[in-house]
Each structure stands twice: as C-alpha cells, then as structure tokens.
Write a protein that binds this DNA or RNA. Structure first.
Lengths: 189, 189
DNA sequence: TTCATTTTTTACCTTATGGTAATTTAACCG
DNA sequence: CGGTTAAATTACCATAAGGTAAAAAATGAA
C-alpha cells in the first residue's frame, strides 16, 4: 500500500505515524507520465505536489538557448515546482519527466489544507526544512567544489544516474557544458 | 517596541498577528556583538535563532585557505546557522558579525517550542519556506548568471552593501576571488 | 533493419577566472 | 598622530571552462 511506501521512504528522516501518511495518500491520486512529458510548463503556477513511485523527473530553467537543471528527483521522493507551490505564483521553472514515471499527486489546495492539519503539518514543515537544507548543500557545492568534484558527489548521491539521465542535463545541473562534462568523464576513466 | 519592528518587517511577506510577534519577543533576549565577533563557531550546533535589529552578519564556510560567504543578513532579518538549528547537529558553518550588531535571540529549545504552538508555528513554517526560496534563487543565479551579473543583482538586493561589507566577503559570496571582483568593479566604472 | 535525429565525443581556439606577487590604499590600534 | 596590519588594486601568466564545429555514437521512429 502506498502509505507504507511513504512511511518507509521517510522514516529515516522524521517519524510521522502511519496515520499521517494514510491521510496524505487519501488526498492523492495516481498519475503517470511518459519520458519528456512536461509536467508543469514555465510561467505557470504549480497546481500539484508530487511523490514519485517510479521513474524520475527534473526541474528546469531556460537559459539563453538551453535548459539548466536545478534538481533531479528519483523514486521515493517528493517533487514539484516547490517555489511556485509555496508562493502560489507562476515561476519560469519547468518540471519535466526524465523517464516514464509513476507518481501520486495532491492538489495544491489539499496541500495547503494538510499544512494546517496537525498530522499533515509536521510532514509539510519537514518538507520545507529538508528542501532548504538540500538547496544550501547545492549552493555550498557550487561555491566550494570544482565541476569535477561536483560530478563525483552527484554520482555518489545518485548512483547510476548516468544510466538514467542524459549527460546534457547532468552537465547543466553541474553548471557546465556537455562538452566540459565529456572531457571530465574521459579524464576520470 | 520590538514586536512592532518584527511585525512591520515581515508584514509584506505574511500576515501574522501582533500577538504572534509578541509571543516571539517574549521568548527572546537582547544581545550585541562587535564587528568580527564569532557568533557561532564551525563544527558546533546552533543554539539560538537571531533577529538583527541593527548591523549585519554573515554565514561562512572554510574553503582551503579562506572563507566563503553563503549569506549576508542585515537589519530587520532573521539569521543563524539554520541548517544546524533544524538538524540539531554541528555543521562546518561559522556565523560572524560583519559590523557591530544589536540582535535579539531565542534559545533553540524555545524555537522548537514555538514551532509546535499554533501562533508561532506559522512564523516558523514561513521562515523555512522563505529560506528555501532564497536558497533556490541563489542556486539559479550561480547556474545562470555571470559573476558580473551576480554582482549587479547583489547590489540591487542590498544597496550600499559595498560600504558595509568587505569586498573579499562579497567576492566569496559571488564565487570569485577578490582580484576578479576588483577587475569587474574597475570595468563597470 | 534502416534512416533521421539527437546526443556525445573530440578538436581547436577564445575567454573568464584563478594564482602569485608587488604596489597602493585603507583600516586599525596604541 | 604615526606605525602596523590588512585589504584592494594591478600586472603577469596559468588554467578551467566556453564556443564553434565536425565526427562518432546512440537513440528513436518508420
């Protein structure tokens, strides 16, 4: 059952009772996307909060003539254009399926509702906090590590990412061009 | 009164009743720091949540042989090693006064207590959310803007920052060396 | 399978930024 | 106020990464 999957996925991070996850799932609906499907278009407001059961997705931003990836999300993680969901305003961010994906999702209005309920509220607070921490870690990597080091860290965080995600997306996430990542990779092996 | 200052500072971002800010202040104590005072040492756990009444502070990370600045905080803003406060674990981050500063602060235990109270809880949730959004904006700047553009954006965000903060700290925040920032500045004028 | 398209690799040169060091300027302190 | 220290500037060269382009490889569709 889906609530069990959620509880298992998040138990290492914070202890929410199974009832909280069951409430979470009760507000959610299943949804699936094909690879490259645009889940949320740029300059729109996020309407859903997603949990990936299987597959992967990425949050992108248009820069000059190509996309930059701000975040990868894989199986058993929350994802969405969180900035837009929180501000209830459109953002230039695009949310894209990077593989065929099975997700569950909750309407934004239900997300806000859960935020105000005692059970769901702890989950939402933890979600905001862990999102901040992840972002700060990304900032630290960008400011203190070389592109090569960032690539190694990404591989440790998501082993096998190179088998699932196009190299150009990984390169954009690292803040370099696909050519540079290709050079780094050939140097490493 | 301090609660008024807090309400006025945050009214543009979310509407908390004055009672919430009064509760916030009731848990807080005044504290002052001299320029360059280390408010929290690296590899310790954050014990307080601060609000700056006057002055400025920065969050730093040691990199090889110098410090990198992750965040600046000026008058009328919250600050602390938020990652450490949330995880209750030590971080390599150092929190430093960049000018003589007047702050109020709340013990971490009171911060967690307020998180669980209905009034304070909204503030804490908003704090986590806005911290995330700020971090994501920083990540976007690092990934999509040149050092020169990032410098211009920083000046717009904190007008007069150059009169208050050492250039080497600004350079480290931008992800470049003081020499590079000096070159950019001489090119701009 | 074959063809078309996209992605990755490689090469060549350019550019932005880093490293070292010396000089000038500013800040700090007695 | 002068003297010491730290910070900012400037110059020189080194290096990591970008831009363009072309070839090779992989992917996807018919």
């Amino acid at each position: 059952m889906t609530a069990q999957i959620l509880k298992k996925a998040f138990d290492p991070f914070f202890d929410a009772p199974i009832a909280a996850w069951e409430e979470f799932v009760s507000y959610s609906e299943p949804v699936s996307f094909q690879k490259d499907a645009i889940i949320k278009e740029q300059n729109t407001t996020e309407k859903y909060f997603y949990f990936i059961l299987q597959g992967s997705a990425g949050l992108f931003l248009w820069k000059e003539n190509n996309f930059v990836c701000l975040d990868f999300a894989f199986d058993n993680s929350f994802c969405c254009d969180y900035m837009s969901l929180l501000t209830k305003k459109p953002t230039p961010l695009e949310f894209v399926a990077l593989e065929d994906a099975e997700m569950i999702r909750m309407k934004a209005s239900d997300f806000y509702l859960l935020c105000s309920r005692s059970v769901g509220q702890a989950i939402m607070q933890a979600s905001a906090e862990s999102s901040f921490i992840e972002k700060q870690l990304q900032q630290i990597e960008l400011l203190t590590k070389s592109a090569e080091e960032r690539y190694k860290i990404l591989q440790q965080k998501f082993p096998g990412i190179h088998q699932r995600i196009a190299q150009k997306h990984i390169a954009s996430y690292l803040g370099i061009t696909p050519q540079s990542l290709s050079r780094i990779r050939s140097k490493l092996k």
